Computed example of a mutant assay.
Amino acid sequence: MHHPTDPARDPQSHQRARRAKAAWAQATQRHGIQWVVWCFAPFVGSVLLTMAFALLLPWWSVPRTLVPGHGLVWQGLAVVVGVVAALQWRLRKEVPPSQARRVLAWLTTLGALMAWPVVTMGLLPTVNGARLTAERVTQVQLMQLTTSPQKGQREPYHWARIVPLDGGTPGSQGGQGGKTRNDASSAGDVKAGRLLVSAADHAAWSQSGTNVLHITHSRGLLGARVVTDIQGVLP
Rank of each mutant, 00 (worst) to 15 (best):
Gly71Trp: 01
Leu104Pro: 02
Thr146Tyr: 05
Ala130Ile: 04
Val79Leu: 13
Thr180Arg: 11
Pro170Leu: 13
Ala23Phe: 05
Ala20Leu: 14
Val73Glu: 10
Leu55Phe: 12
Pro11Lys: 14
Ala22Gln: 12
Val119Cys: 05
Trp116Thr: 02
Arg18Cys: 07
Gly193Thr: 03
Val137Cys: 02
Arg136Cys: 02
Ala130Cys: 01
Lys93Cys: 10
Gly223Phe: 01
Gly174Arg: 09
Asp201Arg: 08
Val36Thr: 08
Trp74His: 06
Ala199Val: 04
Gly168Tyr: 12
Gly188Phe: 01
Thr109Gln: 07
Asp189Met: 12
Leu195Phe: 05
Gly178Ile: 00
Ala160Trp: 06
Leu66Gly: 08
Gly129Glu: 05
Leu124Tyr: 04
Thr65Ser: 13
Gly232Trp: 03
Gln139Trp: 08
Phe53Ile: 05
Leu145Trp: 09
Pro170Tyr: 14
Ala130Arg: 10
Gln34Phe: 13
Phe40Tyr: 13
Gly82Ile: 03
Leu56Ser: 02
Leu165Glu: 15
Lys93Ile: 02
Pro170Lys: 08
Ala115Gln: 06
Thr5Glu: 14
Ala187Cys: 05
Gly178Ala: 06
Gln144Tyr: 09
His158Trp: 14
His214Asp: 06
Leu165Val: 14
Leu49Pro: 00
Ala192Lys: 11
Met114Asp: 06
Ser186Asp: 12
Val226Thr: 07
Gln15Phe: 13
Val44Asp: 04
Ala23Arg: 11
Ile215Ala: 01
Val226Glu: 02
His214Arg: 15
Ala54Asp: 08
Gly220Ile: 03
Gln29Trp: 04
Leu57Glu: 15
Ala20Phe: 10
Leu49Thr: 07
Ser172Thr: 12
His3Met: 15
Thr180Pro: 01
Gln141Ser: 14
Gln99Thr: 01
Val233Phe: 02
Arg19Lys: 11
Ala224His: 04
Gln12Leu: 15
Ala134Gly: 07
Arg194Val: 04
